[in-house]
Simulated scan of single mutants.
Amino acid sequence: MDKLKVSSARMVANARARIEEVETPDLIAALKDPDLVVVDIRDVRERQRSGFIPGSIHAPRGMLEFWVDPESPYFKEVFRQDGRRFVLHCASGWRSALATATLQDMGFEAAHLKEGFSTWAEQGGPVEHSDRT
């Protein structure tokens, strides 16, 4: 295979250099903040298999840009900023770094969970399990 102009690892590193990264203990401590919106961008099967952060909303990575855009026919009211703080997460922090950088480029303010959901429970984060996502 030919070498790419920019590797996925480089894209993640570039994104992380310009976005806000939230450490797991800091997000755990902020969970009761009524202005905090935790956005899980993982695949629905990942949420079903591993559980999810209580109160988080699920926004599939493939629809995120459309759901946050008030001019999109797919806009979701939950993404109206109105002083809320949005923190995205995926499993390891790679997809959420790229997604957060993209939203920032759009003018949507968000941060992401640096280590993702992979160490969430180990670090004392609550996990909810349900058949519904």
Results as ranks from 00 to 15, higher is better:
residue 99 A to D: 05
residue 91 A to P: 06
residue 84 R to F: 05
residue 40 D to K: 00
residue 87 V to M: 11
residue 65 E to K: 09
residue 34 P to H: 12
residue 32 K to L: 00
residue 83 G to E: 00
residue 82 D to F: 11
residue 70 P to Q: 13
residue 50 S to Y: 11
residue 91 A to Y: 09
residue 81 Q to S: 09
residue 106 M to P: 13
residue 83 G to R: 10
residue 109 E to H: 03
residue 73 P to M: 02
residue 104 Q to V: 13
residue 60 P to L: 14
residue 29 A to C: 10
residue 112 H to M: 02
residue 23 E to C: 13
residue 78 V to E: 14
residue 77 E to C: 08
residue 85 R to M: 00
residue 95 R to G: 06
residue 78 V to D: 08
residue 39 V to R: 06
residue 110 A to T: 04
residue 37 V to M: 09
residue 55 G to K: 00
residue 95 R to W: 02
residue 80 R to K: 12
residue 44 V to C: 14
residue 63 M to F: 14
residue 32 K to P: 03
residue 68 V to H: 12
residue 106 M to T: 04
residue 68 V to K: 10
residue 53 I to M: 05
residue 94 W to S: 15
residue 60 P to V: 15
residue 29 A to G: 04
residue 30 A to V: 02
residue 89 H to K: 07
residue 52 F to G: 15
residue 90 C to R: 04
residue 103 L to S: 07
residue 51 G to C: 13
residue 49 R to K: 12
residue 111 A to W: 05
residue 105 D to S: 05
residue 40 D to Q: 10
residue 106 M to A: 08
residue 84 R to A: 01
residue 109 E to F: 08
residue 27 L to Q: 04
residue 77 E to M: 05
residue 110 A to E: 01
residue 72 S to A: 06
residue 40 D to L: 00
residue 105 D to I: 07
residue 30 A to Q: 12
residue 23 E to D: 14
residue 109 E to C: 10
residue 55 G to M: 01
residue 46 E to N: 12
residue 57 I to K: 11
residue 62 G to D: 10
residue 110 A to M: 06
residue 27 L to P: 04
residue 74 Y to L: 11
residue 36 L to E: 10
residue 89 H to F: 03
residue 104 Q to T: 10
residue 78 V to A: 10
residue 24 T to D: 00
residue 89 H to S: 08
residue 57 I to W: 03
residue 87 V to N: 06
residue 33 D to V: 12
residue 71 E to Q: 11
residue 48 Q to M: 11
